[in-house]
Design a protein around this nucleic acid. Structure first.
Lengths: 219, 219
DNA sequence: CTGGCCGATCTATTTTAGCATATCAGGGCC
DNA sequence: GGCCCTGATATGCTAAAATAGATCGGCCAG
């Protein structure tokens, strides 16, 4: 593959990393096989445009043709909007833990569709994910994940022995406490954020924010 | 092909139009068969990334992955740098005539490598191509093209009968007069340009301008 | 030590891009 | 009417993307 494509592929790979997704997670989101994603990222496949767009969009990226003359300006805009993800191990662990929680929420929602605490946890975790300082709160995030994982194991066991999936009262209480802890952590981060930190600059999720509000480059 | 690719393909097609190139001309530049370019532009091929990059670069475009959040800003930058090409027929004719001249210069250079007037014509025509008002000077451009075409026919005839390609004195004089006319037209356009007109905003050629000089988006 | 997750590699199959070449129909110009 | 240029379509062939699925070795947490 020509070096020319390498920059795009590298951007794709970094985009996946920035969202804390594994190749298998991205595969699950897009339907593109993990083995193919590996091939693509290793430069061993000359991906088609439709596939590039699909993968990019799963990472909140869009393909654009930019006039060469506009490259310096465009690259500057992109850099200003793409926060440098702290490369520390602890930050990566926090992102992973956050993703674990979100994954657990998604799975539990299948078994307990009416459990509002799950929505509360999800919303708060998504907001929490916007902050670069989450590495300081890895333990707090784990205390949200743990009750979710515990309940998931119970649900899996019940499903495996063909038993109706029920919610033990004690577990429900723990989930609600986890939701409250997530809310408290969110509030802590929101109020602790220095005014220079670009809020909403970088997000884990891709729900429908109001895109009409242009944050940079207004004319 | 998913509608998603359509925007990119449309941008590619518009980029070709903006440079006044036919599918055959683009084919000659890139080696991609004209029939395949037609298929691509009609949405009947899911082009590979390496091919997209190659075609884009021939049109002075680059492929970029842009964070969705940066789209409004990026699109604004691109719009500000991409002049709306006047859609008038007369403008299109002027662009075509300009391209004819440039093509003739390229061909003549093969027969007359040391003819400095060709360089002078080429440089001036490239500068002329940057202005939107060239539709007012179609006749002037034709008077540059005509001597080039006439000489080209002579050179072709000489080559066809295996005669050494020679430069008649009268033709040389006409070429030099054409070079002077191109120079005069260039000077006229440069001095006539209103200060609001973005000079150097749009170019036919892609020679090595100083890209380190950022014209927009300086930080 | 074990289990789980990671990215990389492998096999087999299907689909299609890419290429070469030819040809068509429409429009403009002389 | 003939010529030239344009974009579109056709045929045939090869190579590789894409898919499905399995498996590997490395790393890490428990």
């Amino acid at each position: 593959m020509a070096y020319a494509s390498e920059d795009i592929i590298e951007a794709l790979k970094k985009g996946r990393g920035a969202k804390g997704l594994s190749q298998r997670a991205l595969s699950a989101r897009t339907g593109v096989p993990q083995s193919h994603i590996s091939k693509i990222e290793s430069g061993n496949a000359d991906i088609r445009l439709s596939s590039l767009i699909e993968l990019a969009r799963a990472l909140d990226l869009e393909v654009r043709l930019v006039p060469r003359k506009a490259l310096p300006a465009v690259d500057s805009v992109v850099r200003s909007i793409t926060p440098a993800v702290p490369a520390t191990e602890r930050y990566r662990s926090a992102v992973k833990e956050l993703q674990r929680s979100l994954d657990a929420v998604d799975k539990l929602r299948l078994s307990f569709p009416d459990l509002n605490a799950l929505n509360k946890i999800q919303e708060n975790l998504r907001t929490i994910g916007n902050f670069k300082t989450i590495d300081n709160y890895l333990d707090s995030i784990k205390r949200v994940t743990q009750p979710l994982s515990a309940l998931q194991k119970i649900a899996d066991n019940q499903r495996r022995i063909d038993e109706a999936v029920r919610m033990p009262a004690q577990r429900l209480k723990e989930i609600e406490e986890a939701a409250n802890r997530a809310q408290a952590l969110r509030n802590l981060l929101v109020h602790a954020a220095p005014s220079s930190e670009p809020r909403r600059a970088y997000r884990l999720d891709d729900d429908d924010d109001d895109d009409h509000h242009q944050e940079v480059g207004d004319d």
